[in-house]
Design a protein around this nucleic acid. Structure first.
Length: 256
DNA sequence: ATGGCCAACTATGTTGGA
């Protein structure tokens, strides 16, 4: 089985690319999507099901929005973070192939002096509590998504350009470490990986061509899954596509 | 040079993303 996460930056624009990528990756069990940017009433459920997939989603107009697409039915779908009153649609979870698959679009934070930054840190605290609860129930669990956190300096093309800003601040990195402390591990770093591996590149300034990116999309997995982990990686192909998302898919494979 | 691009909205500029 194989799981992946992809921030598509508008599913309206990217649906053809998502379906194309799913067709090109027939071994993929489930895909977590972020920034679908659409209300549930206009979500392309019929098109996705017509292509042979199951899907669960929750979204809003213009901003945020998450979905899980899977090759088998989704069970026990959870919408939003339980007990946290937040109009922003950032979390959906479901059980697929015996794995609790959580799809999260963690807030960006905008800037350290923005009101969105404490929102991000508070949100991460709530996520931590939710994770602790879920981990007690699900030995096989994946937290997949756009974390908007580059965990280490090697996850940043040029740390001098990002130091002192969001995505790399000590408090955000600590929140990432706190999730690891719950018993999770970064599927990408379980293997030797190429230097300068990133999952996001700014649309501006030929960033992708220059590989001036960040690794901010992650799959954190439980020990029961780490035991079964066979490979992990980042698929840069969709980022080369015409009219791409600024993020590209990140994946992990497991023995059945 | 504190920008550059892209998407969405109901817009012909503004906001948010990262």
């Amino acid at each position: 089985m194989r799981f992946a996460t992809w921030n598509v930056n508008s599913l309206k624009v990217r649906l053809p690319q998502v379906l194309e990528w799913l067709a090109a990756n027939p071994d993929l069990t489930a895909l977590a999507l972020q920034e679908t940017k659409m209300e549930d009433a206009v979500f392309p459920q019929a098109e996705i099901e017509a292509a042979g997939f199951h899907v669960a989603y929750i979204g809003q107009k213009t901003y945020n929005g998450v979905a899980i697409i899977a090759r088998e039915p989704l069970a026990d779908v959870q919408y939003n973070l339980p007990g946290y009153d937040d109009p922003q649609k950032r979390v959906i979870a479901a059980t697929v192939a015996g794995v609790r698959f959580i799809c999260a679009y963690i807030p960006n934070g905008q800037a350290l002096d923005s009101e969105k930054y404490p929102y991000k840190l508070g949100w991460l605290k709530v996520m931590q509590g939710y994770l602790a609860d879920e981990l007690a129930r699900h030995p096989q669990l994946i937290l997949a998504g756009d974390y908007n956190i580059a965990p280490e300096d090697r996850d940043v093309h040029d740390i001098s350009k990002w130091e002192g800003g969001v995505l790399v601040s000590p408090a955000e990195r600590q929140a990432f470490q706190d999730m690891l402390s719950l018993g999770l591990s970064d599927a990408f770093r379980a293997f030797e990986q190429p230097d300068k591996s990133f999952s996001w590149w700014d649309y501006r300034g030929f960033s992708f061509k220059k590989n001036a990116g960040l690794r901010i999309d992650h799959l954190l997995i439980t020990p029961a899954l780490t035991e079964k982990l066979t490979a992990s990686g980042i698929d840069r192909e969709p980022r080369k596509h015409e009219r791409p998302s600024d993020h590209t898919p990140v994946w992990a494979s497991f023995r059945d």
